[in-house]
Amino acid sequence: MRDEKESGDGNGRAGQPIPSSSLIPRPSSLSFSVLHAPKEEHSEDEYEDACAVADGGTPDAPVVTAALADGASSSVFARQWARLLVGHFSSVPFADGETWSRVAGLGQAWRREVGTKKLAWYAQEKLAQGAHASLLVVTWDVAGRRWSARAVGDTCLFVVRQDRLHHAFPVGRSTEFGNRPDLVPTEVERVAPDRLPPVHEAADAFEDGDRFLLMTDALAAWFLRTVEAGARPWETLPVDPAAFAPWLRAQRESGSLHNDDVTLLEAVVRERPEQAAAPAPAA
């Protein structure tokens, strides 16, 4: 399944169409596409990743933010938690010192959403354990031509520039993936501040032609293993949804890709034709 979205002029807001004209200079634009698939033999209803892209910032300083979360399979109502996280963190800028209080507020929203139903004993018991998800948030400062990222857990960002892996974040080696990644919990209040997982950060400039590949852990582990074997996974990875499903099945069957929910969110920095053709501004 694939969804496409163009962004980059800074006037759009979460969930709103982006105006076709703007007075803001457009040094570049970002085009997004998403591919996703549930675990093999699972239905779409059982898919527990979530992603969102939203425009923000101001007309003078437009930003675009993408968020990708992977609801932990061992949690109950993990899909709802992943959706709440990406909905919030794609549309409200990250602010140091506020992360966990905002997550606590989202945890309350999650409990309101899932806790009002009449549930069997096991769902009630599991509800008390809360839900967990890894989270990756990437923001592009369109005018400043810089990106920044924050992550909890093993949902990854790879930046490919001029046919080379330019950046791997927050996991740098395939051996770092395991069964117990750091996760964002719904029940933040029950975790002592010094036991909360670290929020990793990275930032850099971007250039026209850069490919940003955001992916959940199973695909990210395959990606890094392929790089470590000396190959270029960004060339192998199908971008066509018709080719993605059979490719994924083949990788899973051969054991080279773990059977897990998979989400690939790709952002490509494209030079706009009108910008490319425009005369250089007067000094």
Partner: peptide, 14 residues
């Protein structure tokens, strides 16, 4: 047995 059930509980299903 309770632990095994809870390990397999996903939302309202087991």
């Amino acid at each position: 047995l309770s632990t095994l059930v809870i390990r397999c509980a996903k939302g309202e299903d087991v």
